[in-house]
């Protein structure tokens, strides 16, 4: 069984582009803001006229990943690239927009398909011509760890040559709902889109349930704030920038913590 390596990471957050934009301490930097909203990427072209904010963030994060890996679009198009997308809540804004538009009698024909979580990776596949293994998983950071593990298995099994593990979280449109959860008080919800390009390499990894989170995961949360599914990918970017081992990352969601461990 072959292993993997991290070929590139792209991160866009409410703090800006890349991990360089992250503050040392997100709660302090948030200054009491419950949500640190990300700027909507300005992507050109008529094709994106209906795309939601989370779709645009996803496309921008993938482009940032390809830039980091110094790869062209042509290098990833076709059936050799898998796309595994994870989100805990990014569909909430499009769901809400549709509900409110339908109540107002203004919902258009293509309004509804964008409410599906699968719309987020769909815009990425269309933009980059990705036709390989494809899945959208719902959940937070522990699920992103599962996606990274699945990417490693797909590559080891020969189902793809490379895998993009993408996570997107938006919160601004449903901030009133998140505000009801007191567990989120004191740690700002930071909108983010992050992506990792995983390719064949020499590190054989698998996913395990663990009891505690890693220092790397804690560092990512301290620097970025609560980014739910994006957390592990922000952590990978921090480790890559610092020259640390990225695979010590862990993720926690709904009381379960998952880690990547050497197989």
């Amino acid at each position: 069984m072959s292993g993997v390596r991290l070929a590139g990471v792209g991160v866009i957050t409410g703090w800006g582009r890349g991990v360089e934009a992250l503050p040392p301490d997100a709660p302090v930097a948030a200054g009491g803001r419950a949500v640190v909203a990300a700027t909507t990427p300005q992507l050109g072209g008529d094709r994106f006229r209906r795309a939601t904010r989370e779709c645009l963030l996803a496309v921008a994060a993938v482009q940032a990943t390809l830039d980091d890996a110094v790869l062209t679009r042509a290098a990833v198009s076709g059936p050799g690239t898998a796309l595994l997308c994870v989100t805990a809540a990014a569909y909430g804004s499009s769901n809400r927009a549709f509900i409110e538009a339908a109540d107002a009698g203004s919902a258009g024909a293509l309004h509804f398909p964008y409410t599906a979580p699968s719309a987020i990776p769909a815009e990425v596949t269309i933009e980059y011509g990705l036709r390989g293994p494809y899945v959208t998983l719902i959940g937070g950071a522990a699920v992103t760890i599962e996606a990274l593990g699945w990417a490693a298995r797909l590559i080891a099994d020969g189902a793809c040559e490379r895998a993009l593990v993408l996570a997107v979280e938006t919160f601004a449109e449903c901030a009133d709902l998140f505000a009801r959860d007191r567990r989120l008080l004191g740690r700002p919800l930071t909108e983010a889109a992050a992506c990792a390009l995983v390719v064949a390499g020499d590190r054989r990894l698998e996913v395990r349930a663990v009891d505690g989170g890693s220092e790397l995961a804690a560092r990512a949360r301290r620097r970025a704030g609560e980014t739910l599914a994006c957390g592990p990918l922000v952590a990978l970017a921090l480790a890559r920038a610092a020259g640390d081992d990225p695979w010590t990352v862990t993720g926690r969601w709904r009381g379960r913590t998952a880690a990547l461990v050497d197989a």
Binding site: A88, A89, Y91, G92, N95, A116, P117, S118, Y134, V135, T136, L137, I138, G139, V143, E146, L177, A209, R254, R256, A258
Partner: peptide
């Protein structure tokens, strides 16, 4: 309203404590 809530409700009802995943490929 989170899309993975029913899966976790199912896991609780089964008392399953292994991985709990929700897939949404429409």
């Amino acid at each position: 309203g989170l899309y993975d809530s029913p899966a976790h409700a199912l896991a609780r009802s089964l008392r399953a404590r292994g991985p709990v995943l929700t897939v949404s490929t429409a």
